[in-house]
Write a protein that binds this DNA or RNA. Sequence first.
DNA 1: TTGCGTGCAAAGGTTTTGCATGGCA
DNA 2: TGCCATGCAAAACCTTTGCACGCAA
Lengths: 131, 131
Amino acid sequence: MGYNTKQKEQITALLRSANGVHMTADDIVSRLSENGISVGKSTVYRQLEKLVEQGVVRRFFVEEGVSACYQFIGEDGGCREHYHLKCSVCGKLLHVECEYLDEVSTHILRHHGFVISNEKTVLYGICENCR
Amino acid sequence: MGYNTKQKEQITALLRSANGVHMTADDIVSRLSENGISVGKSTVYRQLEKLVEQGVVRRFFVEEGVSACYQFIGEDGGCREHYHLKCSVCGKLLHVECEYLDEVSTHILRHHGFVISNEKTVLYGICENCR
DNA sequence: TTGCGTGCAAAGGTTTTGCATGGCA
DNA sequence: TGCCATGCAAAACCTTTGCACGCAA
């Protein structure tokens, strides 16, 4: 799985600690820099690429700028099996483990012939706190 | 609502005629060029921006390349009220008018306190034909 | 020591912007 | 005629890549 470097640890730690909120590659560079940790931007992109591949981090296009947003989703990989709700206001990601919603995928398959990918799908809207 | 120019009409007409399939800004320039219509790329971007604002066209980030994809969704605004399924293979967008799925929004509000935005949400997966 | 990871700078793309010109109303 | 739209080129951005050097194992 590659070497363990200071940079890799710091990037992962930052994303993990921001659990529930996304940030851009630039954000990561500045946040680490504020804490006195200097990391090259290409290193950040390269680590993010790996983390996304491993399913630890998820990449979003949240519209705002043009830049991609990255968000920690967990190291266990369970996120392929449930739906995600993302609040357009605060940016938080809610993981929904819900039997009723599991049936939705079945319904869409049976009635609309379409196989949902929970890995790629995000339901956007506004969360309880932001209303 | 601005002037009616030849370019604006051509861009809208092309997107409308490709209903169900998305294209990039570059695609639009080449497709029009093939038909002997020359339109500057910045004009295409500027018109797309307006069309997206008006809700006539939808902007997707389909991951693959880096460039955004644009797709005609209709001039009536009815698309704010139903779910959309987008096939990751062929790129087609399915508009789903379905009572069962309408209930899903209600369920998510009642049980998870979250208001779904059909305007922003897209369910990704694989359609019947592509399986 | 081996070879992956890092950082810098440059390259590669996409999208936006400034400005003079053209065309709709 | 008054103004918005267009086109071109340049600028602004984001992301990727090449290469020499550093560091983990």
